[in-house]
Design a protein around this nucleic acid. Structure first.
Length: 756
RNA sequence: AACGAGGUGGGGUAGUCUGGAUAUCCCGUCGGGCUCAUAACCCGGAGAUCGGUGGUUCAAAUCCAUCCCUCGUUACCA
């Protein structure tokens, strides 16, 4: 299938923090493997992605850091694009080394003015085609002390749930009872970012994309993809389509984003909603690549070069579009983005909402060919989390370890079908006992054995090869080659790399059987010797096979091996099928062979990761400083407004506002509707009993607690916890591991006594 | 608790959509071999009632039902 146009679309990393290994395994490594493979097969590959730089979280980060949003995204765009290059991802050069007609790559950013222009153009044409509808909605609007107002996204508003009266419900959904409602129904709304601000509800007009018009076309598309999509992609898409598609807002009251291409004051302070904008990056990025790179490099189609990768050609063939992303992103790429592409095609033909939606035909933008979405990579059993600092950051990892080690480990352990786990012992073991012991060792055996033989014009091995004697090995490798190719075509990276490794294993087997070391010095010309050394010579060919087939996975080592074999040129430009070209004249590198890899030492690594974890707390502001998560902790859930790092001193007055008192536990009951909660009745010295909900089930039996005199916070704002109002909080000590013990009173004292 | 994912030798995994004969591979373990090679390599053995139960079928790891358990998200929490 050479000469195909393949567009590799990589999910746009959000420029609000550095990338971690979870991101790499999920969406940044697989597309690079695929792109390298496709290039080697002779296909024309354009790879596109970039930093997603708009949206509210970035403005929040900017506020917290006291800088402007552009500075935030500049910083992370620089860090992340460098990290991806260091990982060997082929974002450079922008023009394919084989020539511009073969494509290239561009890691762009959404703050690019040209991206903005393209998004605005699409916005206008979709609107003119009648694919938007305008609706008036109610949104929260806060006014702070300086009298400056802004609209608040739902997730930045909290209040009391209209259905269960739970406090702390989010703007559009109550997590306690699961009810969803119009955000305006929320009672006592408070801004999470700015709790003192005055909040009111204002009418605001927005445009909605008529996704409903595309229901049928998308169902057809999904059914056509049944056989190629992975099960997770099928399931997620089906869920969306079964629910029935509804129109979806494409504009927001937002300051950091792309302004609407509309006249009139009523639209100021509104931007294109990020979901609508960021997916268009795949399209804008291809156009920008044409404009900035393909023209200068002399692509025959000039600024229309992008069409080769985007449009269905005259003879009806579509470019092959592959989208790489994590599982949380699936519906955006199988439902929403295809609906936008269909809409853009529709509008371009001058059709309107009343015309039926057609699938792409000649000249139209093509839909995806496959979306090989990944599950998640976990870290020591827990999820990667920025706020919990449970992560291994890509930049810091690459400072200390070989990029190919990471590429190997994440490939062989890729979360293709279910979540997989990253942990250091497993990492060390896989690198040492698979990559090094099997692959590295085999290559090193061949080279060092060869180096002991007298060297001829083309090295020591060229003269001792008898092709007829290695027929069976050639057939074996041809078989393996076909299996690797098949696996990669089906996006089964783990399996593909296993096949590559099996070639190295095969090499070790035949060397073992041939025992060439016995014949290094003997002078005889026995058949055994000829047979044996011929196998050794084949080891060179096998190593060359490994260099070519491992190139998509291990680009750096592949280059090193290529050189060690005395081969010249760029191994990434060598044709995939040349791995099984047995006619290639042998070459030799006369320098002493050096091992491809160095073994890892687990103890050293754990020691170094530990020290990094300790330092990291102190250097939180340095985004590339490493943070190694400790034990997994489900306790501290993410919060939007994380407390600032470091020590904050408390006024004495503030402390005294906390009213601590002594109470006696009278009764302990199970909470009817919560797993971890007890409902505790306390004698607080007053006539009435006090009810406190406590999450102590894991640590105490009810009978252990009854009768204890404990300290509780008496003036905590009462709040319903899953249906039972809790009037305060008992104090307990927590060692951060699994120990939790109540604070009790030494000796007798009246209930209700103040604690100070 | 709601939603999602998953349970396959000691650990990790493939196979499950599309039913088929001795259930894959890596690590570990036991025994043997080799000594070229980075405590590396090669051969062989032991070890799995494929979470439980019931059903469909000539045939179930695979399909259906039900139960149990684990993980994730959200909720909750000293």
């Amino acid at each position: 299938m050479a000469d195909e146009h393949v567009l590799i679309c990589v999910a746009w990393p959000y420029a609000n923090g550095p990338l971690h290994l979870g991101h790499v395994a999920g969406c940044y490594l697989p597309p690079d493997i695929q792109a390298r493979f496709e290039r080697a097969r002779g296909n024309r590959v354009l790879m596109v992605s970039g930093s997603d730089e708009h949206g509210t979280p970035i403005t929040v980060t900017a506020e917290q850091k006291g800088i402007n949003p552009q500075q935030v995204v500049d910083e992370y765009h620089a860090i992340n694009s460098k990290a991806l290059l260091d990982l060997g991802c082929s974002w450079e050069p922008n023009i394919d080394s084989r020539g511009v007609e073969y494509g290239g790559s561009l890691f762009n950013r959404t703050s690019d003015p040209m991206h903005k222009e393209i998004v605005q153009d699409n916005f206008t044409s979709l609107m003119n085609a009648g694919l938007f509808e305008r609706k008036t909605t109610q949104q929260y609007y806060e006014t702070n002390n300086e009298g400056i107002g802004r609209f608040l996204p739902d997730r930045y508003v909290e209040g009391i749930c209209p259905s269960c009266k739970e406090d702390g419900a989010r703007g559009d959904q109550c997590d306690a009872c699961g009810a969803t409602y119009e955000s305006t129904e929320l009672q006592n709304p408070v801004s999470k970012m700015n709790p003192q601000a005055k909040i009111e509800i204002r009418d605001t007009d927005h445009f909605f994309y008529r996704l409903d018009l595309f229901q049928q076309a998308l169902q057809q598309h999904a059914s056509e993809r049944q056989t190629v999509w992975k099960s997770n992609v099928r399931a997620m898409t089906k869920q969306w389509l079964d629910m029935g598609l509804r129109s979806r807002a494409v504009t927001r009251d937002l300051t950091w984003g792309i302004p609407l291409p509309l006249e009139g004051d009523e639209w100021s302070g509104k931007c294109v909603y990020v979901w609508f904008e960021a997916v268009q990056g795949y399209y804008s990025c291809a156009k920008i690549w044409s404009q900035r790179h393909a023209i200068d490099a002399g692509h025959p189609s000039g600024q229309d070069a992008w069409k080769k990768w985007w449009c269905v050609s005259k003879d009806g063939t579509s470019p092959r579009h592959l989208y790489f992303l994590g599982k949380d992103n699936i519906p955006f790429h199988t439902v929403i983005w295809p609906a936008l592409i269909l809409g853009i095609n529709h509008a371009a033909k001058g059709l309107t909402a009343s015309d039926s939606i057609e699938m792409p035909a000649n000249g139209d933008l093509a839909l995806e060919a496959n979306v090989p979405a990944m599950e998640y990579l976990m870290l020591s059993g827990g999820q990667f989390s920025k706020s919990r600092k449970h992560a291994v950051w890509l930049p810091s990892f690459l400072e200390r370890y070989n990029a190919d080690y990471l590429r190997y480990y994440l490939s062989i352990n890729m979360p293709e079908n279910h979540d997989t786990d990253f942990n250091w012992p497993d990492f060390v073991e896989k690198i040492n006992s698979e990559l090094i012991a099997a692959y590295g060792n085999f290559v090193h055996r061949v080279l060092t054995l060869g180096a002991r033989l007298p060297s001829g014009e083309r090295g020591p091995l060229a003269g001792i090869e008898v092709a007829e004697l290695t027929e069976v090995h050639r057939l074996k490798l041809e078989e393996i080659h076909a299996m690797i190719t098949d696996s990669l075509n089906r996006h089964r990276y783990k399996e593909a790399l296993r096949h590559v490794m099996s070639a190295a294993q095969y090499g070790n087997q035949i060397l073992q059987a041939a025992t060439p070391w016995k014949y290094l010095k003997t002078e005889d010309d026995s058949n055994e010797k000829i047979q044996s050394l011929s196998t050794l010579a084949f080891g060179w060919r096998l190593s060359r096979f490994l260099a070519i087939t491992s190139q998509p996975f291990l680009p750096f080592s592949s280059v090193k091996l290529w050189k060690a074999l005395g081969q010249t040129g760029d191994v990434s430009l060598v044709s995939w099928d040349d791995a099984i070209n047995w006619q290639v004249p042998m070459t030799w590198n006369e320098e002493d062979p050096t091992p491809l890899f160095e073994r890892l030492d687990l103890e050293v690594i754990l020691e170094s990761e530990k020290s990094l974890a300790t330092n990291a707390d102190a250097t939180e502001n340095n985004p590339i400083s490493a943070v190694k998560g400790g034990k997994k902790s489900k306790k501290d859930s993410e919060k939007m407004n994380e407390a600032p790092e470091g020590i904050t001193y408390l006024d004495f007055e503030t402390f005294m506002e906390v009213d601590l008192r002594v109470g006696k536990i009278m009764r302990v009951e199970d909470h009817p509707n919560a797993d971890r909660l007890y409902v505790v009745k306390i004698d607080d010295g007053s006539d009435a009993e006090r009810t406190i909900c406590a999450g102590l089930k894991k640590y105490y039996q009810p009978e252990e607690m009854v009768g204890k005199s404990v300290v509780f916070v008496a003036n905590l704002k009462p709040r319903p916890l899953r249906g039972v109002t809790s009037e305060g909080m008992m104090l307990a000590a927590d060692d951060g591991k699994d120990g939790v013990r109540l604070v009790t009173i030494d000796g007798d004292i009246a209930t209700g006594s103040q604690v100070r």
